Simulated scan of single mutants.
Amino acid sequence: MDALDLDRQLCFALYSASRAMTASYKDLLAELGITYPQYLVMLVLWEEASAPEGVTVKHLGERLQLDSGTLSPLLSRLESLGYVTRHRSAEDSRSVFIRPTAEGAAAKERAECVPVRIGERTQLDPASMPELLETLRTLTRNLRAEPAPVEPPGPLPHH
């Protein structure tokens, strides 16, 4: 096999798995009226529901690894659905807080079956999940870290 065969590429295997995983959520989240990226936003808000003012857009972006340009339309749509509210900080007008509404908080109960159903769809042994998650987190950390210096390859051969 050639090193450039598509089926030997880790990047393609991860890309394919990511697309398949995201697609698997579509029908489950349709019941909530939200998309997969909106679901991720709600997961953070539900997880951090004890924060009295909510969470800042900046914090949300850090947790989801999304920039504000990507996050803003997601939040606007969730706000129009009645799932979240946004308000500026009284201390720092540059900080915007996001908080689930009563409807957004109630959606958590309807979403509790989603991880179970996704787990069933993967057909993976639940006992293997912690190791798979740790492998993926390690991969992400390594790829985000400062790359080690690499000797530049020689010139490409001319054909």
Rank of each mutant, 00 (worst) to 15 (best):
R110E: 04
H159I: 12
T101D: 00
P73I: 04
L74E: 05
W46P: 06
W46F: 02
L64A: 03
A148V: 13
V44N: 08
R19G: 05
A145R: 11
T22N: 05
Y36P: 00
G119K: 02
L74F: 09
V116C: 04
E62H: 13
L60A: 02
R77S: 15
P100R: 07
Q123M: 05
Y25K: 01
T56Y: 09
H59L: 08
L28S: 10
A30E: 15
V150T: 15
D5A: 14
E48Q: 10
R121F: 02
T140D: 12
V96S: 00
R88I: 02
I98N: 02
A102Y: 07
L78C: 01
Y36L: 02
I34M: 14
A23W: 07
D2R: 10
P152C: 05
E112T: 12
R137T: 09
S89W: 08
L64S: 05
G69E: 13
P100T: 15
D27I: 01
L156T: 11
A127N: 08
L74S: 04
T140M: 12
A107I: 03
Q65A: 10
L43I: 08
A17H: 04
G119E: 03
Q123Y: 04
S16M: 12
Q123G: 06
A106T: 02
A30K: 14
A106M: 04
E112N: 06
E31H: 12
T122F: 03
I118T: 09
R88A: 08
R99I: 05
T135G: 00
A102C: 00
V57E: 15
Q38I: 03
L28G: 01
E62I: 12
V84T: 15
P149S: 13
A23I: 07
I34K: 00
D7N: 10
E53F: 07
Q9D: 13
A102S: 09
P152N: 06
A105Q: 10
L124Q: 12
D92E: 09
P100G: 00
T22I: 15
L32Q: 11
E31G: 08
E53N: 12
D27L: 07
A13F: 08
A23V: 11
G69R: 14
V114D: 03
L133G: 03
P149V: 12
A107L: 13
L81W: 08
A106G: 01
A148K: 13
A106L: 09
T85Q: 09
Q38F: 02
Q9C: 05
P157F: 07
F12I: 15
